[in-house]
Design a protein around this nucleic acid. Structure first.
Lengths: 152, 152
DNA sequence: CCGGATCCGTTTCGATACTG
DNA sequence: CAGTATCGAAACGGATCCGG
């Protein structure tokens, strides 16, 4: 006899957004897809943050249910499954960018201060590049010569 | 015999930010302070989202430990305790604004679509107003004639 | 192998009752 | 008013197992 957990939240946008994204992993998965071009279960597993496989599976399901990602099976190789961001998912880029700038400014992170200032002053250009890469249908990671261009 | 929960996270800014803010309540508390000018424990309790008192106490402690808010005791009335955003907390305004715009665009919320378009095109002005109100030391809620000016 | 599902111990959450 | 105390429910983390 398990009662469903009550969810007495207001309909304010921030509240509704946090209902989906308000945990430690969901936005991180979206970031990995967006700027590192991760597409498979395996890639997320080894992303350096060591998410448990059951949690990862759960989050991928929830993100799919929320319409943020889609799950696709490779027709030629049925073993291979790939996840892809939807437009709704790509639209999280501004949230991630602001979170990045805030963290880099106020927390101890690996990002160089100078790089952050540059990013903060070029928000629009960065977001344009992310959108362009994804709408071309070939979302390469935001890296140049094997190095992350941005310290996401 | 309680082992501390392992926290094997990268030092990337987004990851570090989510370590502090990656739950369903922290950002909501910051929003209530920022746009509704909530300052007391009691106000947060009745914010319409029905946070449990022990969770609220825990989040306020964690936000204080992270330097996002400060806890102040009224010298004249020692029973009265007020919380206030620090600069680090005010700097979360862009994150909240992007989260608001995303939620309003893509989720069922109480916010009118037209209002969101206006906000999305006036990000800078909105953030300026938030900062100005807070730096005056008298952070009034973002409301006019008792109505919320913005559908946060 | 890949993409999970299952099991189990630990941690956190949520609701309510209670207190200085 | 501003929180604790308590306790059952849910989420998490690690390890292992499994089907294609």
């Amino acid at each position: 006899m398990t009662r469903p957990r009550p969810n007495r939240r207001s309909g304010c946008p921030v509240s509704v957004s946090l209902e989906i994204l308000g945990d430690r992993w969901s936005l991180l998965i979206v970031r990995d897809m967006m700027v590192r071009a991760f597409r498979t279960f395996k890639q997320f597993q080894g992303s350096g943050e060591a998410i448990a496989t059951n949690i990862l599976a759960d989050r991928l399901r929830k993100l799919e249910a929320a319409g943020i990602i889609v799950r696709e099976r490779n027709p030629s190789d049925s073993r291979s499954i790939a996840y892809r961001l939807t437009q709704k998912g790509i639209d999280l880029a501004p949230v991630l960018l602001e979170l990045l700038i805030w963290g880099a400014r106020h927390e101890e992170t690996d990002a160089a201060c100078a790089a952050i200032d540059v990013m903060a002053q070029n928000r629009a250009a960065i977001l344009d590049e992310v959108r362009r890469r994804w709408q071309q249908g070939d979302p390469n990671a935001l890296q140049v010569d094997g190095e992350w261009r941005l310290p996401f």
